[in-house]
Design a protein around this nucleic acid. Structure first.
Lengths: 125, 125
DNA sequence: CCGGATCCTAAGGGATACTG
DNA sequence: CAGTATCCCTTAGGATCCGG
């Protein structure tokens, strides 16, 4: 059995990459980019093909990582709103540096989604 | 069967995240951060716990993605050197923005590796 | 409306042995 | 020195059904 150092020893870049690595998290960032609270269904509607289970799962992971907050309104019907925290907004901003390089890469399809009409991730164009 | 749009439609941030997402790729970036060519064993020696198979695999993926170049010298014993491309260096630099935020996060162990004495990823301190 | 519980599959990564 | 070749296992993510 090997030492577990490789797992226990954390690097700031790897920690952040782990927090944003999830199939739909970039798109969740986009939906919350304004900083304003957004309802669950609004997020769901703007992200085609994601199942409720997986979306919820990724939202919970992001909440646990401190990227977003979740507010529950005890109403009928129920309402839940999500919004990015300061940390989430800061990381989103940092990712824009990666985005600048991404634009220069070949094999990147920058067209909009045919279904929702949006880019996967945009920011003050 | 669903539309495959979700997979075919590429986002610049996701493309880059995919390119740097590999258990050892951040550490490979660190080894090549100087921009100078580095031999295979030099990389391997500075990254504890990685097997030859996986290290080679990740190096090849990064080469295919245009992040690094691989030079083979037909000598005995054989010599192979790796170095970051302009693209790789640019992405490394962009990742430093993520790193700034990472430093502010809780649960990030910033101590050096006990075996190799280095941080997983550093850059002109 | 916003999920939880359960089951399943694909793929990244690890252990070990071997080689031009 | 710098890798291949196999075999194996864990885990993220998906499908489907159920519930406050």
């Amino acid at each position: 059995m090997e030492s577990k150092n490789a797992k226990e020893w954390k690097c700031p870049v790897e920690v952040i990459l782990a927090m944003v690595s999830g199939k739909w998290k970039i798109m969740i960032f986009r939906e919350l980019a304004s900083g304003k609270p957004v309802r669950y269904n609004q997020i769901s509607d703007n992200i085609p093909h994601v199942s409720a289970k997986v979306l919820t799962q990724q939202l919970r992971e992001m909440e646990a990582d401190g990227l977003l907050r979740r507010e529950i309104f005890q109403e009928i019907p129920p309402r839940v709103e999500y919004s990015l925290t300061e940390c989430g907004l800061g990381i989103l901003k940092a990712m824009m540096e990666l985005r600048k390089w991404g634009y220069g890469l070949k094999d990147v399809d920058m067209s909009k989604c045919e279904e929702c009409g949006a880019y996967r991730l945009y920011y003050d164009e």
